[in-house]
Write a protein that binds this DNA or RNA. Sequence first.
RNA 1: GCGCCCUUAACUCAGCUGGAUAGAGUAACUGCCUUCUAAGCAGUAAGCCGAAGGUUCGAAUCCUUCAGGGCGCGCCA
Length: 587
Amino acid sequence: MNHIAAASEAVRALILDALGRLVAEGAIPAEPLPDFNVEIPADRAHGDFAANVAMVCAKPLRMPPRKIAELIEGMLELGDSPFDRVEIAGPGFMNFYLGQSWYDDVIRNITEEQARYGTTGSGRSKRVLVEFVSANPTGPMHVGNARGGAIGDCLASVLEAAGYQTEREFYINDAGNQIEKFGRSLDLRYMQLCSEKGQAVLRAAQSTEEVCRAVYGADGNTPDFPMPEDVYLGQDIIAHAKHYYDENGDALAAQPEEERRKALVAFALPKNIQGLKDDLAQYRIHYDTWFPESTLHQDGSVQRIIAQLKESGYTYEKDGALWFEAEKLGADKDFVLVRANGIPTYVVPDIAYHYNKLVTRNFDRAIDILGADHHGYVPRLKAALTALGVDASRLTVVLMQMVAVMRDGKPVKQSKRSGKALTLVTLLEDIPVDAARFFFNLREANSHFEFDLDLAVEKSASNPVYYVQYAHARICSLIRNLADSGVPVPEQAELSLMGSPAERMLVRQLALLPAEVDTAAKALDPSRLTKYSVDLAAQFHRFYDACKVKDAESEALRDARLMLCEATRQVLANVLAMLKVTAPEKM
RNA sequence: GCGCCCUUAACUCAGCUGGAUAGAGUAACUGCCUUCUAAGCAGUAAGCCGAAGGUUCGAAUCCUUCAGGGCGCGCCA
């Protein structure tokens, strides 16, 4: 249950009620009044909730704000409301203070809902598909994929918590130009290994790694093993070629190039895809669906989309190519659908894919997590969907800014061309999954992100994930100690004994979770939850410092605090579960 | 040239549907463990919220212009 929203609604209702009676008594004129805000003030000294009703009504009522506030205050009937007092402050704010029973209800509610606490129904069971990472299967995942993975997976958790029927999907780009390029690259490396120089390397090397290093050279392009422009240079390509050679020898070298590429792709691509699955599993990401692009070609979807777009009337021919009139539908410029050589551009399967999501599979919403370098492409995709008669607002693209990897305070150059980008696997060798997932969700997607390798590797307290986990472990330890001395967490306690600032601050923070989940779901911003978890941990640590549990002034108070601790532990565990970060019982 | 994003404390960032003295974490300095985990807490210091205009009772927040940084603008994906 969302105690914050309920209390906020109560403020609004109390004020509207009071205004109604003021009108009835003729104290203020009966005219439509502007909407007002009920918010949680930044400064607690300004109450638990503040309303600006008196200020926004000052002009239409032609009365000073404080005077209006006083009139409203005189008419308020706090009665059964969660509030026990109201103050007028500053230019005319009305500050509402929560009564003790509200705090008690929050704790009882968490005790009752347990792992369900924090879930809401705001998504009304709508079906949402979250597509994320969708890394190119021609190579390993890089740091950008790692960020997308953490953000997408946590966003899906948030949407689940908010009551959406959520599915996670990985789109496998197993067709098109980059697969051609993959085949070409594999073939070149394979033929190099079959050559005299390659054979010499194979004889001399003790391991695949040594072969890769020898062939790769300093930057993937050595005089002995030259590579042309526009191929993949990474060592993973060499390793695939070497493995194929190990298993099948050089018989393939005599085949036509087309056949060689086909065989090498058929050999390497499934391995890569399995590698992606394994790496993502290690990163605690599990998809409901792995959707191969190739199926869209095989089942005729791509051709059908082209036909449908033609029928829409938004296409034209120019220079032998088929163009889409995206500009007429809000995009910045028209683009090519089918090249003069008859091969569709990458956008067509993409359009077909999103059509599949929203029409064929009929998800209510589709959410894509993409790198910011795709921003220009989003309006075009949406324009195409519009032309197909699909409400493009059902697709939301979360753009995430680039990750700048820092080492020794300097940015690490990520060279895609030479295949030297930092991979997810390498990253996870250095830092724990917990830290990586938390770190990548620390900032909202749409902000430039600086990943400090030294800091993440450090495992120090500067990394906030330890701060949050420590709070959980600390509570577990406390509960364990008391249980060992015969004091288990009680099922009921005199909660109203807890009225100190530290206790109340903690409870208010606990009460905030459902509202945070809703906000995060609405804004598609899972980073709100990491921030929330840090704030909650901070409130607990303060409470821990200010209030003794074991040596409380009375057993009744001790029991009440024990219940509060357990509620806090539960909420920390719930948030960490959404982030898929472990909640340790000991540290 | 056009478009998107960013610019807040020494560093990394919150705050942005306009609200009451601008927040947190790091780093610096000071205190707090014979007592539930000091991976913690409390405190000090630190800011012309990139610049200039505008809107208003009120602007870090909205609008305009400008400056600096990142990223896009292919019959590449």
